[in-house]
Amino acid sequence: MRMNPLIQFMKQVQGKINSSVYASLQGQSSPQHVAFLRQLEKELKVEESLVVPLKELNVVVFDLETTGFFPEQGDEILSIGAVKVRGGVVQQEETFYSLARCNRELTPEIKVLTGIEECDVETAPELSKVLVDFYDFVKGAVLVAHHASHEKKFLQHYNWKLFRSQFKHRIVDTSFLLRIAEPNVSLVRLEDCCDHCGIPVVDRHHALGDAKMTAELWSMYVERIQALGMKNLRDVYEKLSR
């Protein structure tokens, strides 16, 4: 029997950071990292984002640039960009951006696409530090990404590889809102969605540039689905499950 998507989603988001991670972290991460994860666990327990009114919801919209599509085959995260959105208003000055160290040769396609060269990532911070800094920026906020399966797959893989921790943050995909607000419009690429909405396409395939454009999409479509009567994320997922 196919599980109701809302029930499946709630099962996914009810998890907490497994306390067993702390034992493994003691041997490979600093005490500060362990303390941070303990505090993050507390914040994730407290937040009830499914029922927070959308007009009050705090989210972090983010994007990853990677060497490819398959972390399980060795593809790596090159950079993370993020921007905060409060109550549907993009906080242009509250941003996060970092390159992550990568010692492998980048393909010509990736270099052209992202503008990132080997010299940029050879001396960048280790990914473990970048992720901890990113999660510190996020804290208990809901994560948002455009067609988020790519980002989720990489974070799941590297959370386990680096920290022996399951990825437990909540991620909302902007395509969910587009599907509800404009069910007859079929758009996939971020630049096509932005063109459709009159959002300038700036710094495409730069992690922070993509995060900012996605944040504008999120802000616009949150307003639209509220006008359709949806008050919170629970309403969104109930609508999608029908």
Rank of each mutant, 00 (worst) to 15 (best):
K152A: 11
F163W: 04
L78Q: 14
D133V: 05
V142M: 04
K212N: 10
V21K: 06
G68T: 02
V236C: 07
K152V: 13
R86H: 09
I199L: 05
P71C: 04
V144G: 07
E191W: 06
H150S: 01
D203P: 00
N184R: 14
Q92T: 14
I180M: 07
T214H: 08
I171H: 02
D63N: 09
S98D: 06
E223S: 13
V52F: 08
I180E: 05
G115T: 10
E118Y: 03
R242P: 05
E94D: 15
K42W: 06
K42M: 12
G140C: 04
A207K: 01
F70Q: 14
T107L: 05
Q226T: 06
K129C: 11
I199H: 04
G198Y: 02
E93M: 06
A211K: 06
F167W: 08
G27N: 15
G209C: 05
G81T: 01
H146F: 02
V222H: 00
S29L: 12
F70K: 13
V34A: 06
K139Q: 09
K168N: 06
K239D: 02
S98G: 10
K42H: 13
T67A: 04
F69H: 03
M1V: 11
E182N: 06
L143K: 02
V90L: 07
Q8R: 15
E48H: 13
T214Y: 03
H196T: 00
P71L: 02
S186A: 09
L177R: 01
E151Q: 13
K111H: 04
Q8P: 02
K139Y: 04
H33T: 15
R170Y: 03
Q8S: 13
L106M: 08
F137H: 05
L208N: 08
L106H: 05
G140A: 11
E151L: 10
I17M: 13
E76V: 03
P125D: 07
I110P: 08
A35S: 12
S98T: 10
Q226I: 05
D120W: 01
D133K: 10
I199Q: 03
V90G: 03
T95V: 14
Q32T: 14
R104A: 07
L240K: 08
H147F: 14
G68S: 05
E182F: 12
G15A: 12
T95M: 04
Y135W: 13
A124G: 07
F137S: 02
M1N: 12
F70P: 01
G81V: 00
I180T: 03
M230L: 15
R204V: 08
H169P: 00
V112N: 12
H169Y: 14
R2Q: 08
N184E: 12
M10K: 15
K239H: 10
L233Q: 02
V13C: 12
G115D: 11
E223Q: 14
E47Y: 03
